[in-house]
Amino acid sequence: MLAFAIRRMFQSIIVLLVVGLVAFSMFNFVGDPVDSMLGQERTDADVERVRIQLGLDQPFPVQYYKFLQGAVKGDFGISYRQGRPVSQIIAERLPATLELAFVSAVLAIIFGVALGIFTAIRRNGWAANTIMSLSLIGVSLPTFLIGILLIYIFAVELGWLSSFGRGDVVDLGWWRTGFLTKSGLLAIILPAITLGLYQMTLIMRIVRAEMLEVLRTDYIKFARARGLSKRAVNFGHALKNTMVPVITVTGMQIGSIIAFAIITETVFQWPGVGLLFINAIRFVDIPIMAAYLMLISVMFVSINLIVDLLYFAIDPRLRLDKTKG
């Protein structure tokens, strides 16, 4: 277990170093940072001064080391477009994205697991079949079309919910939350459904497939033969044993939720880091792109690491296999 954990952590660190190298190269090779900081009227002395100030006169490994040092402290320089520190801009916008991701993950897990169990137990019922066919359409629809469709139904035609922004937010000093106002809560519904729908169908399909697999096994037959109630068999015996793959997939999907938030945030003009990133790409704002890249890799890599370790901790069979092999 310990050896596995150490090896896994080592791998994660290498991934982060590689991503860091990519982000660092973006700074240095895409456009000239000196050019973007100095205006038209500059002297050679100015250029030299800025080069030394930015540390561009030092050898490559030293520059990379300094970049990593800055990145660990959260220092990514100044946005080319907004002229403010990148860390400050991101810190302002991160709460919006995290709240959105949190709500859609919760929705996806609750409805995904519930519908998965339902469709597995009532395998041939008409309701289960309808849900399965609908989920197929849900998977094929691109995220942005789902968002537009929801806006059309609930904002344009029915006029129940707002179609853009976060509504009123409450400033807690270090975190601006939309959870405490009515308009904030109403505003998060549509984006959260848009973002969580794909993950929900995915979780539903996996829970269903795993449940069907487990329901066929001998110990379920035996449990039924013992006369246990349906409830005890389905939830106490079957559901428990389907949880391992579900946790893995769910964990991996949390990373995707944060990445796909870029699309949802654009459709709903949600003021989070995803919208910031898309605008950074459109205006080639390298510091923000690099910082977003690092931020999201740290999230992805740590989520993957935690999921792998959890996997190991939850399923005793895996531990046995590893020590033998």
């Binding site: 991934v15 590689v18 995707s256 990445a259 796909f260 950074a280 080639v284 390298i286 792109m289 890249l293």
Partner: peptide, 23 residues
């Protein structure tokens, strides 16, 4: 491949698009 697979394809495509645009 492993490093790239850590990230969703659409994010990788966006990033490459952004970098290439800078060039």
């Amino acid at each position: 491949a492993d490093v790239q697979l850590t990230f969703p394809g659409i994010l990788v495509a966006m990033l490459i698009f952004g970098i290439a645009k800078g060039f």
